[in-house]
Amino acid sequence: MAEDKDFFICRCEEVTLREIEQVIDEGYDTLDDVKRITRAGMGLCQGRSCSKVIARIISQKTGKPIEEVLQVSYRFPVRTEKMKALEQGGGSDATDN
């Protein structure tokens, strides 16, 4: 069975298994590293689908225990919002187009 690695792990940013394994082999072996180098986990869903999968890949390739790799740091806002929604009390008089 030829192993196909050219499918997406991070669908939002279209990062493949091959790309992720490659950067781990280059020594980028934390979730943050992989994210900064490949943008995996930086898209619309903010890693909600792929972060656990990438953690497992890192753990399997490096032998690090999974609990040391899983994501525990997050930043606000935890949902993707439009800039106009960020202003306190803003947006009420803002108009689309």
Partner: peptide, 18 residues
């Protein structure tokens, strides 16, 4: 979207108002 100072909840309503 966030919790600040252990008590302040930042909520975005209808995708447009914080």
């Amino acid at each position: 979207c966030g919790i600040f100072n252990t008590t302040d909840v930042w909520i975005v309503r209808n995708k447009e108002k914080s």
